[in-house]
Design a protein around this nucleic acid. Structure first.
Lengths: 197, 197
DNA sequence: CCAGAACCATACCACACGGTACGAAACCGT
DNA sequence: ACGGTTTCGTACCGTGTGGTATGGTTCTGG
């Protein structure tokens, strides 16, 4: 009962996600957000709590929607295919025509004022979680599927560094083609012959 | 003539550099800056213009001091040594004990409000300049020094992506050892045998 | 020893920030 | 039709932002 809200929370969250994605947590003001979401300040607070909670919900939506490809990519065999799926998936997600450039997890709050330190740490935590999942995936690979002498943890960190670096490049203006060539260049170092072994 | 200033501009700039490095352009308030520099607001404006000019001067100082190793690294032979020198140099610069984590060029303003767009673009421009210098260095390498089938432009973009990704990792808490292993993992893909060819 | 010049410190400005109080409007169950 | 409930819109709050006016202070050149 009571007056029904005049906006769709999910759609509004999608708009908020875009603003955070483009401008980062601190760079997105409440005015930017409410304007993009098409709702007023009090409506935002009633529906989403406050700016930080809104950001966390946008982050959840980002992970489940934009990064949804990850789960399937990780399942690919052999391990090299999983890494290739991840990297090409990141490249595409960071260079979408209808989405902001780069990655919300990197754009969100890399360096910020002390007030946003909790947000920064949360993002670092989530990046670490992805890296841990990848390390686990690589550790489960049969011997011989990884490049000779490569440690799964090191390899996972290397792949994530590359992904995050591509996010920086995308935000700097690099297009999809450029990013895909970065992935291809990296994968040339991990020949199919190794995977076939 | 006139009253002499009671602070050393170069030292004050160094303190400002540290604050920008740690908190980024927007995340560093004038209060943060003046407190770290040990000077008052009007002194800052008299000596450095305004916040944006101060940032640009800090950026120049960063390039000439912290990134000073680049010129020598690029001169190394063969090309693989130049890339190795660059990457290890970045890894060390991003994980210094007495300096903020990460890279000022990446921390400074990756995503920001519209007001700081000029700063963001300037940083993207400078990152591109480094990439262009590296591409030129690789293009000048004798045939056979690069991995087979690798395009110098793609290779340069790949190396820069890795460096910028390490900057993200460093800001996330990765230590020097972790970063160096990322570099080593990347360099394993570019065997010495290729360089010796 | 004084005039001019540059610097320092305080106190201030307009404005944008994140967040909220409050009254009017719109709905549901009875 | 009406009471209770929830939303919406406006107008506001305290605080912090980047930036500056002003007056006292400390130096140099003559």
């Amino acid at each position: 009962m009571g007056r029904p809200r005049e906006f769709c929370p999910d759609q509004a969250l999608g708009q908020a996600l875009e603003v955070f994605w483009r401008q980062g947590y601190e760079g997105a003001s409440l005015s930017d957000l409410t304007e993009a979401m098409g709702i007023t300040r009090p409506s935002l607070y009633a529906a989403f709590g406050n700016k930080e909670e809104l950001f966390r919900k946008a982050l959840d939506r980002y992970e489940s929607h934009v990064m949804g490809f990850m789960a399937e990519a990780m399942r690919q065999e052999p391990a090299r295919e999983a890494v290739a799926g991840l990297l090409y998936g990141f490249a595409d997600a960071q260079s979408g025509q209808d989405t902001p450039a780069g990655c919300l997890g990197v754009n969100g709050a890399l360096a910020c004022s002390e007030a946003s330190e909790p947000v920064r740490q949360e993002l670092a935590r989530r990046r670490g979680a992805v890296e841990a999942r990848l390390a686990e995936r690589l550790r489960a690979a049969p011997a011989g599927q990884l490049p000779p002498g490569a440690d799964p943890d090191d390899l996972a960190r290397y792949v994530m560094a590359l992904a995050q670096g591509m996010a920086v490049q995308a935000k700097s203006g690099a297009g999809r083609e450029a990013l895909r060539r970065v992935v291809a260049t990296a994968l040339q170092a991990w020949p199919d012959s190794v995977a076939a072994a």
